[in-house]
Write a protein that binds this DNA or RNA. Structure first.
Length: 318
DNA sequence: TTGTGTTTTATTGCCTCC
DNA sequence: GGAGGCAATAAAACACAA
């Protein structure tokens, strides 16, 4: 007996709604008493807990009126438990556990939909209405809650998995796009170099000046742009717009040797540091959501309500 | 018919709350 | 300390393929 808990009689009360009522069942429903022929039934407080095991299960009278066994007795002590062969003989056709009827289950289901927990009064009321012991109603609700929880967990898992798959697909697409743009930058850089060579030496000083100015103007932007492109897995845009011109400028700065720059050594160092070792970008997706060229990803497909810094989630997800 | 997997009913032990 | 909830589990009932 759980924690010394004394359960009320397990005798099923279905006969209250059955056409043929079972007098013995009614007789023994409130407590387990000695049967007419002598064997002891469970008298609360007088028997060990093992006595109330499932082997002492009683029958459920068929609610539809079928007299499924005229003796709805509690099953008494097992033979191995008491060695009393007379008892076993007496109960040689012990009633088995019966399932609730469809009507009973439907009734309980509806009640469960209204409220999945049982107050004592409601439990008693339901038991009366459905023709069961209050204890059985309580057990049914308990098992029903367990089933509901299992189903809910499955649903949650499926939803989470779908979200993860969607997010992963988004991420993979972004990676591909990043690589594509990287390649584009390289190609444009090459083109620019070729053009520079073709222009000859006469324009070189002027070109140097233009390039230096461009470098200075875009220094900050270059840092962040290059950070995204070369040193993080973040997308290739920084403030919502794909800065192709910025990227060109950034790569044109790579196209010229340091000695061609008018920047001071410190500035160049800083620039280089910025380009090669940008500060880590803590969040990727907030930028995505600001992006104007990319339709805002639905919350459910990008962060799904999870904070991006939720490392537990991401470590699980990957 | 039988073996096997699933579902349903019920018990047990532990835990929390009042 | 009792009542009730929950997780784990047992066992009967049921479904179904071979």
């Amino acid at each position: 007996m759980a924690g010394g808990r004394v359960y009320p009689s397990n005798n099923n009360n279905n006969n209250t709604s059955a056409a043929g009522s079972n007098n013995l069942s009614v007789l023994f429903q409130s407590q387990r008493v000695a049967s007419p022929s002598g064997p002891l039934f469970n008298i609360p407080g007088s028997c060990p807990s093992s006595f109330l095991g499932s082997r002492s299960m009683v029958s459920f009278e068929d609610v539809n009126g079928a007299n499924r066994g005229s003796r709805s007795f509690f099953r008494a002590l097992d033979q191995e438990e008491n060695g009393d062969e007379d008892v076993d003989e007496y109960f040689h056709h012990p009633e088995k556990k019966r399932r609730l009827t469809v009507d009973q289950v439907q009734f309980l289901e509806k009640s469960f939909e209204v409220e999945n927990k049982l107050e004592p009064e409601r439990k008693i009321q339901l038991a009366k209405e459905v023709g069961l012991q209050p204890r059985q109603v309580a057990i049914w609700f308990q098992n029903r809650r367990a089933r509901w929880k299992t189903k809910q967990l499955e649903k949650d898992f499926d939803a989470l998995q779908a979200s993860f798959n969607s997010l992963k697909a988004d991420y993979d697409n972004l990676l591909k796009e990043k690589d594509k743009l990287k390649e584009e930058v390289v190609q444009l850089t090459d083109k620019l170099l070729v053009k520079e060579k073709e222009k000859g030496n006469s324009e070189e000083p002027q070109q140097k000046l233009v390039v230096a100015e461009a470098e200075q103007e875009s220094k900050v932007s270059i840092n962040s742009a290059k950070s995204d492109i070369f040193d993080s897995d973040s997308p290739h845009y920084t403030d919502g717009v794909v800065h192709s011109s910025l990227l060109e400028a950034a790569d044109s700065s790579y196209a010229f040797e340091p000695e061609q720059s008018d920047l001071s050594q410190d500035e160049e160092d800083n620039l280089s540091k910025g380009l090669l070792h940008p500060p880590p970008i803590p969040y990727i997706f907030p930028k995505l959501e600001d992006d104007g060229d990319y339709s805002d990803p639905p919350a459910t497909s990008c962060n799904f309500g999870f904070p991006f810094e939720d490392h537990a989630f991401w470590s699980w997800a990957y």
